[in-house]
Design a protein around this nucleic acid. Structure first.
Lengths: 191, 191, 191, 191
DNA sequence: GATTAAGCGAGACGGTACGTCTTGTCTTTAC
DNA sequence: GTAAAGACAAGACGTACCGTCTCGCTTAATC
């Protein structure tokens, strides 16, 4: 259904430039965080005119959203394991996220993502899936239901959302977590 | 040897000015949101020099934090009811929050608070208590345990945090809620 | 050699803006004097962003210097006459300057120029020529030497400088001049 | 140091403060120049409240004027010698001033004085006497007239003013002087 | 081939807000 | 009773970015 078959008159969009901007944006976001992220900084690092960025992304959150969708903001993807034991798997994953949040750099990355979400609802929507994220958690919980380790009566989507929400709230604070926190959180939700 | 107990030499801090600034700050925060909140705007509305603000609050998030602590950012406090029926009470409260989040104005207030929290960990910490908030939710859940409506085995703090986190995550998105969402969420956590 | 002169890449400097700034600067200087001359005032009157001024003139004295060079600060140029009689011509001119200095407005203009000169050596250098100024005085004195009305032994540049300096010193005071002052000053120097 | 002889009329403590302010003002003026001279800096260095300064001197130029009158701004007084040979004496003195003006520090002091004069006519008036200064120059020239080294027909005041004015004009520029300048200037005026 | 429309780099522009500095007044407390 | 210490309103300073707008290139598709 290629609506306009690329048969426009002028020069086509440069894919090289496109990627240079995304790379620079992701790099700036990780180095400086959302608060100090500037279009001028991205343009400078990408070796690009500002107008080239504004031509394709109306706001800076749109640019960040594309980076997020491309998976450029999570170099190390936190995936939830599946060893067959639901409770252990979820505890392991939560512990991993706690570990990320404990380090200022990791916490900074998460709070920057949340900050971006507060400025752009689409990022907010995507964050639930990508953060850790909902999709995989929902999948893991579903598998747990099928394996008889979780009651079919439990609303899985809400459970996943509550889990991710709890982590997010932790990240907004000082990130202090004690041993046992992960277990307690999972107990609260999955028992 | 009156070391420093209020016996400093110069003029003391003007309480009138202090309050004028807090009032203006809260007003600006509610009207314009965190993103468009400016120190200059607060100074102008309060009829105050900028330096007077910078003297007492090093950053704008410190100013916002004090407003939050003073309860100036929640004119209409969302308190959790206690009719004796835990499940119904929590569902009612969650519905109330959903109602707030559905309206752009209410959602804007919440996302502004989250944005402020991403810039200042103290605000993050306080947000859990004040947002709706944890303290009261924890209290209500405790009462439920005593009334035999909730298993004593459940870790209450984690439960409350998951509940608030889920609401917060909702607010970051487009705020769409369907009837039944509140019930499902409470079922997921309290059953 | 067209290496980079004409082939600069970005948008060229707007001559319209350039002139608007110079006009506004001259106007502000004349109206408010050096002490109350502000970049913000110039920017506002010119309808221009402050950064546009700072881009081209690093300090406010550089801006004033350019106005001076453009002759924007002396709407009514005080030129020294040449009727053939050196002594009378110089006395007339000195009287004219005394007249200017007697009025607070005129004296304010001159002291403002001197104030600018104290902040910027280039302005100081230019002031000697432009004030009234040295160049024309030197020329008139030279003509006097050729006409045999002034000894060729006299160092003309120094004579002119002493003359202008005396006027300047007068302007720094209260500007009181009595009839006969002009004649006495010229007698002191040209006899 | 005259600590407290309670039996005299005035308030001894007040005089101490008065002097501390003048000392601090002179010190600040010499160290930082007129442009960076601040009342707060003087108050801090003198260990005095700002109001104490404002009480006695309505503007900062009044404070500077008093320092000038007290001779606090010229630690090394440039006095004009009297060896009996007028021409040589004046040349020596002019050379001394040129020497002062050649060094940026010395030139800065002079331009600061001129700047103060542009802001306060009384300072301007006093500057003529104090700068180098007129009084002594006039006295030396008068002695020269009596010694028959200068024509009685020459208006001495105007001559002195032209001389000081020429030096002042030199100080406003880049301060470059060549050998012979002093002689040429004196020749221009005294021959 | 010539024309023409777009992409692109560079960067000037009118603005807003920043956080700092200084001014001159006002207000307590200490000596 | 005089001042020190210092809070305060006002507003200019110079900087950083914003988002828009030329410029003079470089590409392609259309004529």
């Amino acid at each position: 259904m290629e609506s306009d078959t690329g048969s426009r008159r002028g020069a086509p969009r440069s894919e090289q430039t496109h990627l240079a901007i995304l790379d620079a944006a992701a790099s700036q976001f990780q180095e400086r965080g959302y608060a100090n992220f500037t279009i001028e900084g991205v343009a400078a690092q990408a070796g690009v005119g500002k107008q080239t960025i504004y031509r394709w992304w109306p706001t800076k959150t749109d640019l960040i959203a594309e980076c997020l969708l491309d998976g450029r903001l999570f170099p190390e993807r936190l995936s939830i394991p599946n060893t067959g034991d639901l409770h252990t798997d979820v505890v392991d994953w939560v512990s991993q996220v706690f570990e990320l949040i404990r380090r200022p750099a990791g916490r900074g990355l998460v709070t920057s993502l949340i900050a971006a979400a507060t400025a752009n609802e689409q990022i907010g929507e995507r964050l639930r899936e990508t953060l850790g994220g909902r999709e995989s958690v929902v999948a893991r919980l579903s598998a747990g239901v099928e394996a008889g380790q979780l009651s079919p009566a439990k609303p899985i989507t809400e459970l996943a959302e509550a889990l991710v929400g709890a982590l997010l709230l932790k990240a907004l604070g000082e990130g202090r977590t004690e041993s046992g926190d992960a277990v307690r959180l999972v107990d609260a939700l999955l028992t």
